[in-house]
Design a protein around this nucleic acid. Structure first.
Lengths: 208, 208
DNA sequence: CCTACCGATCGGTAGG
DNA sequence: CCTACCGATCGGTAGG
């Protein structure tokens, strides 16, 4: 007579909780994500929700993992098959802009990394560390890899400053997120893509 | 025998509360700014703090006003006397970068506008509206004014897209804030200024 | 996965 | 500007 579920059902419940967690946290922040709100939304008890994770901090870390999985699915995977260097970089940059403008199902309040990075940038602990790791991975590693490949392949000039490009690309996406979320600017995506194109065009190899 | 203070003392207390509010909110967010924490930090009672503002929302709005005053003092006023157009634009851009890197007294958690914009971009109400107004003012009006002046004066090419420049400049400062707060990147300020210079150089008037 | 509960803290009020 | 208090909600636990 206990309401305990099978392993498969429990796994599905966990997935439902995480999906909802990412959506709530994108709006209310990882701190504003509360067990009570989650339980209410899902029609569960607080203890039922918390049982899947143990503590709120574990839930926050799981939500960040889930957000990273969504980001990978929407931004990285569709372009993973492209040639390393400029082709894949262009693909990822387009998908990234699309993700910020259209991923309202998972992130009604905008990219969770962007929200969480600002929310935790002055704190310490495991949540902040996870956020730092993830933003470094997606911004510096993933973008950086194709940028370095483009330099090595001669698609960008040999003296291109990759970290400078990462810094500026990051800014373009942060600005796009703000324009979409705060100012509801309809032309923001076009501005972002124009900025990316101009940035990369500047680093085109000198002919001859 | 009552602990009530004179008008001047009350005003000073109010200023102390606001100063502390901006500092706390920059770390914990405008939502994480609580009356109890404020009272504890200032050695006052909660009722004593709240009496100056009435409600938490009024306190949040007052904190935003105060943050704007600090921003004006550090970024705008030192450059207000410069010639409109490129000279003042360069001055403001340098002070802005300086403000993000060094204003740790007032903003230990980074620029309050940046934090608040992300925190409230998916909510509605007076606080969100105030944040939108302030970011529009500083980004689009103030930067936009000198950019348009520069175009009118022939310091930038006549077909320069001012809103595109505002979009990209905003991104540079958002990226700088993240690099400083989240990644503690020592070279971030130099990267920001390099990005600004390159952006404006691209819009230099074509000779002849 | 539930009910029932814990101490702590939230924003805010009454009254002085 | 204080003390003393309010109902609501927080994260979390006991026990089943």
């Amino acid at each position: 007579m206990s309401p305990r579920k099978s392993v498969a059902e429990a796994r599905e419940t966990r997935a439902r909780i995480l999906d909802r967690s990412v959506a709530i946290a994108s709006v209310e922040g990882l701190d504003g994500l509360t067990i009570g709100r989650l339980a209410l939304d899902l029609g569960m008890s607080k203890a039922g929700v918390l049982g899947h994770f143990g503590t709120k901090e574990a839930l926050q870390l799981a939500a960040l993992r889930e957000a990273s999985a969504v980001f990978s699915r929407l931004v990285w995977e569709p372009n993973a098959h492209l040639d390393a260097g400029l082709p894949r970089l262009h693909g990822v940059c387009e998908s990234w802009a699309d993700y910020l403008v259209r991923a309202r199902d998972h992130f009604p309040g905008g990219c969770l990394f962007t929200t969480a990075a600002v929310e935790y940038d002055a704190r310490s602990g495991p949540v902040r560390d996870a956020i730092t790791r993830l933003t470094v991975f997606w911004q510096h590693r993933r973008l950086g890899f194709d940028l370095r490949a483009a330099v090595a392949l001669g698609e960008l000039r040999p003296d291109a400053d990759v970290e400078q490009l990462v810094f500026e690309l990051t800014g373009i996406y942060l600005s796009l997120n703000q324009a979409v979320q705060l100012n509801q600017a309809a032309d923001a995506q076009a501005r972002a893509l124009r900025a990316v194109d101009r940035l990369l065009a500047l680093e085109a190899p000198v002919p001859g």
